Simulated scan of single mutants.
Amino acid sequence: MNTRDIIALLLTPGVGRKNVYKILSQYGEEDLTIHHLKEIISNKFYKISSTDLYHFYEKSKRILDWAEKARIDIVDFQNTRYPSSLKAIDDPPLLLFIKGKYEFIKKEENCIGVIGTREPTAYGKEIAKMIGGYLAQKDIGVISGLALGCDTGAHIGCLKHKGKTAAILAHGLNMIYPNENKKLAEEIIAAGGCLISEYFPFEKPKNYSFIERDRLQSGLSKGIIVIETEETGGTMHTVNFARKQNKKIGCMKYSSIFNNYSTLKGNEYILKNMNSVPIKNYSDIDDFIKK
Rank of each mutant, 00 (worst) to 15 (best):
F45T: 05
N174W: 07
G193P: 02
Y82N: 00
E103L: 13
F104P: 01
E109D: 13
R213C: 07
M236S: 08
I224P: 00
G233V: 09
G116D: 05
M274L: 15
P93Q: 10
T3I: 07
I6Q: 00
K106F: 06
D5H: 12
F45M: 05
N110Q: 11
H171P: 05
C111S: 13
L86R: 04
K183R: 14
H55F: 12
V226G: 06
P120V: 13
M274Q: 11
Y46E: 05
L271W: 10
C251T: 11
S276E: 14
E186M: 14
N181P: 07
G219I: 08
V15F: 03
Y27G: 00
N273W: 09
I48S: 03
T229I: 06
T117Q: 08
Y57K: 04
T33E: 02
T263I: 15
L64A: 07
Q78H: 06
S209W: 03
K138H: 02
I40C: 03
L96K: 09
E29R: 01
I285R: 11
A190D: 11
S209E: 06
S25G: 04
K18P: 02
Y123S: 06
G163D: 13
T235A: 01
L24Q: 08
T229N: 05
H171I: 13
I189Y: 03
N2T: 03
C194T: 08
S262A: 13
S255L: 08
G132H: 10
N110V: 12
L135T: 02
T232K: 15
N110H: 09
A185V: 01
L95M: 03
S218Y: 03
T152W: 14
S262C: 07
K18H: 09
I23E: 01
V75L: 04
T229V: 08
W66Q: 11
P278H: 09
P92D: 01
P13C: 07
S84D: 11
I63Y: 05
I34T: 06
E126D: 12
E119V: 14
F288M: 15
S49C: 11
S209L: 13
G124L: 13
I72R: 00
G116I: 11
I41S: 00
A191V: 08
W66E: 07
M175P: 03
E103T: 14
S50N: 12
E231H: 08
K129C: 09
G250R: 09
I48C: 03
N181W: 05
D214A: 15
